[in-house]
Design a protein around this nucleic acid. Structure first.
Length: 948
DNA sequence: AGAAAGGCATA
DNA sequence: GTATGCCTTTCTG
């Protein structure tokens, strides 16, 4: 059987889409800012197939111009597919060039889809005695399967499965693969816009097939059906037949199978390598040479597809994921980040390593001695909880040599654990040993609970990668897979899936703990070696050494500190809110004439617009619901009393659920305070973010919301809260960077910048500026930072579109250099693929040259906003580090507690108040020197509201 | 139980 | 129009 000739037909777009979505959560962007995810994904799959199967005949099939026939049949055919992502559009020409260089035939036929080309070719090849393998995840192809035609499907988690007749029979519950057409026709396919029969999904379609065998037979016997189903299907007979036609793959495309044209031959290696190098595919070059080398042995698909259809290993694997995995692996429906070629990855099973646990007292002594002789060590703590405040040490892994490492398990008894950590204290507190880790802030916080102050130089791989590629995700798994081609042991393998039944590290056998923990340390060490080279570029190294790494300590300290919360006060607020919400509810029900869930946008929309018909043609959201967002309802408020009540209800509910009721639950019992977690690697601009709870979005705009801030109080009566805000920092930055003298002067003279702007654009003396004029000027000043449009401005003010446009035009005439600066930023982004902050923090803008105006526009606004927002973030980070160091050096009792983008909050020891006011203001204002002075406003009070 | 959608709080 | 995180409802496995 294996001497039979084999033809592989690759469905290009399906694999391109699949590759693209595999990287969707962490797109591959090369140094030129090009998103190479789709190319990378496709090439991984292709090379993998070649490497595994060593096909003697192979072609890659593309669509061209879509299927005219199908569109003629049904004009909505494939109409509601999302616009093709940019990365895919640019991928196609690259892929075709690579294929040409590899001497792999490309099959396209104008006006036909790849499905039809593959279908036609496979039937012709079958006649000539070939076995054909259709390489595609697309379940539609199952209809073509025969004795000699197979689907060769990539599956989740890596690997392939081959579908022959028995597999198709089993998956679709049909007797003949051709019935797959009926199946698809009945249930429809949203990605191809095949309508299907109304009310028929996967389950019903299978039932019908078992009973009637075909679409035609079902439609001829609808009298046997009952109820609503009968009505619906009888009304949709035509649609049913049309759906079946749309689902049918054509077998009469004018192409011819000539074996000699499909033979594999030697690729043009230098050419392929050159293209890969241009795309910066280092690893693929390796894979490529392997795929085309003669030595490697191939396990063949034919061997796996024995006629008895015994479950292959791959099937056994996918069977666990659900008996019907057709949809899970469909590229268009799958948003899961999923490795495209995991099977090519190394794992702990395939890489040689030496991981050892150190358990006895004697061994520990020897180990510590050895440890102290190192200059640079990677470590990773294993604990009982993700919350460092309650986490107990289960063990610590160490590695200082690739592929090698040690694991120290910790006793459960707290005193014994402390004894063990004491032996390690000299290591952790050594100034001379560099500490390497992934997310060191966590380990530092855990160790702080054991009274260990981790010192010495730090290298955090997560932070390093954040600077190298801020748009990607930075989890260790992702980094290992991307940079080391290695898949670490998933934590789920040890403690089970997330959820209430998730186990505890403590209960994992020591052997497994060791494998897992030392692997993490080993990988992190390898990542460090990788990243430290890449950091060398531009200013990245400086940002790393001078900002992000020092900041890590500062944030750890702030988070450990936490902030005191007045629970009783919040509880009394909550009671009052409950009463007011109830009252509003009653009024709303009366006005609506019935009771409903006001918090449900769906029900609310139906009441307001279907039942009460408040508007002639209400706006819809993208999913077809009535839009009931604040900006839409506000318009209607003056005409209908119920609207204002609903808005009030929403406001109070939000306040109660998100803040007043939630915050007391976030108080950490062991400290009695709220400890937020600052994320240092999520915001693409360089800002921090805060969660569990988010303390960066505590209300302030409305009177009622503002009350929540009264609940944030000093630790005790010896302390007071101090809040220090940068005044207009983003506007100052844009003024300085653009060198717009008019604006710079206004700041230098300490003028009210919004009034000053109003005076200039409305051409009135400063004293004559009205409140309204100042308000509008303020909106434009802010809007500039985000990349205003006349449309947006008119939405935010009382101005019409025309007036808004005029205001913006006048604004740019008043501040001409500002406009010039903004276009410089966009030009820079176009040329370089990125923009940067005052400290050289980069943001890559892959869509800056997109042909799609909407996409490009968004990238252009990013080009303006990112340097401004990011520079402000850089500056406050410097200030935080400097203040923290001064507080430490001066042995002050005052602590920094919170950062809210342009504001810092401190718990000030009252005797230090006078010093602190000066110290904090000075450090913040002098964190960075611009052509515009920075101004900081300091407030002090018995709670956060009063300090403002 | 988890994801998606709609909505909304901050700078 | 920029940048986030979290709430409730509703859908789906």
């Amino acid at each position: 059987m294996s001497d039979q000739k084999r033809l592989f037909l690759v469905d290009a777009y399906a694999l391109i889409f699949r590759g693209y979505y595999a990287f969707i959560k962490n797109p591959r962007i090369n140094s030129k800012g090009v998103d190479t995810s789709a190319i990378m994904g496709f090439m991984n799959s292709l090379l993998d197939v070649i490497k595994r199967e060593r096909p003697d005949h192979l072609a890659v099939c593309f669509d061209k111009g879509g299927s005219a026939d199908r569109v003629e049949m049904f004009e909505a055919y494939k109409a509601n597919r999302d616009a093709t992502p940019e990365a895919i559009k640019i991928a196609v020409p690259y892929i075709q060039d690579i294929l040409k260089a590899m001497h792999i035939p490309i099959m396209v036929k104008e006006g036909f889809e790849a499905d039809d080309v593959i279908g036609t070719l496979s039937k012709q090849a079958e006649k000539e005695g070939y076995k054909t393998f259709m390489v595609t995840p697309d379940k539609d192809f199952a209809q073509l399967v025969s004795e000699n035609i197979f689907m060769y499907r990539p599956v989740f988690g890596g690997g392939y499965e081959t579908w022959g007749i028995p597999e198709v029979q089993k998956k679709f519950e049909v007797t003949d693969p051709l019935q797959v057409i009926d199946f698809l026709g009945m249930m429809g396919d949203s990605s191809d816009n095949i309508p299907g029969l109304p009310g028929v999904g996967e389950k019903t379609a299978k039932k019908f097939l078992a009973q009637y065998g075909s679409m035609e037979n079902l439609l001829a016997n609808t009298h046997e059906l009952k109820g609503k189903m009968k009505e619906k299907i009888e009304a949709a007979k035509e649609l049913g037949m049309l759906s079946k036609k749309l689902a049918t793959i054509m077998l009469d495309v004018p192409v011819e199978f000539h074996a000699e044209n499909f033979e594999m031959s030697h690729p043009d290696i230098p050419k392929v390598t050159e293209i890969f190098q241009e795309l910066e595919f280092r690893r693929l070059i390796d894979n490529f040479t392997k795929a085309f080398s003669v030595e490697a042995t191939a396990e063949t698909a034919t061997q796996e597809t024995s006629s008895e259809a015994k479950a292959t290993p791959q099937e056994t694997k996918s069977a666990g994921a659900g008996q019907f995995s057709l949809f899970g692996a469909d590229p268009s429906s799958s948003k899961e980040a999923e490795p495209v070629s995991e099977f090519t990855r190394k794992t702990t099973k395939t890489s040689s390593h030496f991981y050892q646990s150190v358990a006895s007292g004697m061994a520990t002594k020897l180990f510590v001695k050895n440890l102290m002789n190192q200059t640079s060590v990677c470590f990773d703590t294993e604990t009982t909880s993700l919350n460092p405040l309650v986490a107990e040490l289960v063990g610590i892994a160490f590695s200082w040599e690739v592929g090698k490492g040690f694991y120290l398990p910790f006793p459960e008894n707290r005193e014994e654990a402390q004894e063990l950590i004491e032996q390690l204290r000299p290591f952790f507190e050594s100034e001379n040993i560099e500490k390497i880790g992934q997310n060191l802030k966590y380990d530092i916080k855990v160790l702080a609970k054991y009274n260990i102050d981790v010192k010495g130089k730090f290298f955090d791989t997560m932070l390093a990668h954040y600077l190298i590629n801020p748009d990607m995700r930075h989890s260790m798994d992702v980094l290992a897979e991307t940079y080391l081609n290695y898949t670490p042991i998933p934590i789920e393998a040890l403690i089970g899936k997330k959820g209430k039944n998730q186990g505890n590290m403590r209960d994992v056998p020591l052997e497994k703990q060791t494998e897992y923990a030392v692997e993490d340390a080993d990988i992190t060490l390898q990542l460090k070696e990788h990243f430290e080279k890449e950091l060398g570029e531009a200013n990245t190294q400086k940002l790393f050494d001078d900002i992000e790494i020092p900041l890590l300590r500062v944030l750890a300290a702030m988070e450990l500190e936490g902030i005191n919360l007045d629970k009783d006060f919040l509880n009394s607020l909550s009671e009052q809110l409950t009463i007011d919400i109830k009252a509003l509810e009653t009024i709303i029900y009366t006005e609506a004439g019935e009771e409903f869930n006001i918090a449900s946008p769906k029900q609310l929309g139906d009441i307001l617009f279907d039942k009460m018909k408040l508007v002639d043609k209400p706006k819809k959201t993208k999913t077809g619901q009535y839009a009931t967002s604040e900006d839409i309802l506000s318009y209607l408020a003056k005409d209908h009393e119920i609207i204002q009540h609903i808005l009030d209800f929403r406001g109070l509910s939000k306040l109660k659920s998100t803040y007043v009721d939630a915050l007391p639950n976030q108080v950490e019992p062991s400290t009695g305070r709220v400890h937020t977690d600052y994320m240092q690697t999520v915001a693409a601009t360089g800002r921090l973010s805060s969660n569990n709870p988010n303390l960066q979005n505590i209300p302030i705009r409305t009177e009622r919301g503002r009350q929540v801030r009264k609940a944030f109080i000093p630790r005790n009566e010896d302390y007071t809260l101090l809040a220090a805000d940068y005044s207009q920092i983003e506007l100052r930055i844009i003024a300085a960077l653009s060198k717009e003298e008019t604006m710079i002067e206004a700041f230098k003279n300490g003028e009210d910048i919004h009034a000053s702007t109003a005076s200039k654009v409305f051409n009135v003396p400063l004293e004559a500026v009205t409140r309204e004029q100042r308000g509008n000027a303020k909106t434009v000043n802010f809007g500039i930072i985000y990349g205003v449009s006349a449309f947006g401005l008119s939405n935010q003010t009382d101005l019409s579109r025309g007036e808004a446009k005029e205001l913006i035009d006048t604004y740019y005439e008043t501040y001409p250099k500002l406009r010039a600066y903004m276009s410089e930023l966009v030009d820079f982004a176009r040329d370089n693929g990125y923009v940067q902050t005052v400290l050289g923090r980069r943001r890559y803008l892959k869509d800056i040259n997109s042909r799609n105006a909407v996409v490009r526009g968004a990238a252009e606004r990013n080009a303006v906003n990112a340097p401004i927002q990011g520079s402000a973030a850089d500056i406050i980070k410097i200030a935080m580090i400097n203040i923290y160091n001064k507080l430490e050096a001066g042995n002050y009792k005052t602590k920094m507690l919170l950062q809210v983008h342009d504001e810092l909050v401190f718990d000030v020891y009252k005797p230090e108040l006078k010093d602190m006011k000066t110290l904090i203001k000075t450090e913040m204002e002098n964190a960075f020197t611009l052509d515009v002075p920075l101004d900081v406003e300091v407030g002090v009070g018995a709670d956060w509201l009063e300090a403002h």
